[in-house]
Amino acid sequence: MVPAAVLPAAAVVPAAAPGDDEHPAMTRTIPRRPDEADVPVLDVRAMSKVYGEGDTAVHALREVNLVVRRGEYVAVVGQSGSGKSTLLNILGCLDAPTSGRYLLDGLDVADLDEQQQSVLRNRQIGFIFQSFNLIPRTTAFANVELPMVYAGVSRRDRRQRTEAALDLVGLAGRSDHRPNQLSGGQQQRVAVARALVTSPALLLADEPTGNLDTESTADVLNLFDGLHSTGRTIVLITHDDEVAERADRVVVVSDGRLSERNGVRS
């Protein structure tokens, strides 16, 4: 069960959001447990993921360990097929590990049933995909609003927070547009707004700039920088060194094993 205390219901918009000071959502504070600072947001212990069985088994992850503390900005790099997407999917509770433990905010995910995992995904994690994954034929507003509907947020609060989130990503004027009426960069910004609208403890992004041009890439990365500076925890996959350079910490995935790359920001 997810304790209510670790499910912050307010503070959607980071305080440093430019031009956003008048939004009521910002004036709220995130309730924290006294010991919360000591609990890592992510704590992965000897986690493995194997696809298939016997001779055809593929070891995507081999007994990896990873600890991410609150407020860290971690970039995961590695060649395609190295297992970095598998890692992120497991961190996002979209997939389950074959063995090993995964503690999210101190909770062992394996102990949770499907209903509880869906609550966890809803409240604790904001996931951003390479292919945006907006719901087709549905407006940007409805897409951003969606996770709050599943969270049971009242309609009026949803409207406020959706507008604030779209404003934050610079798409306040496009809330009625459908995904096919938006550019790739705009769609990804809608996806970012959707990921942070529930103010999750953790933002996970799988190659968020992989399908974007340079200008849109810069927009999205600046958003991440802003979120990071407000204390948001971010784990991001990229194969682009320029993107990785913005992170506090770079983790290299190679052949299913993790290693730290030091001195990126010396």
Binding site: E114, L120, R121, R123, F127, I135
Partner: peptide, 13 residues
């Protein structure tokens, strides 16, 4: 796929 997106956003089964 849409079901997958909804689940990723926290929709219970």
């Amino acid at each position: 796929r849409e079901i997958g997106i909804r689940k990723a956003l926290g929709a219970p089964p």
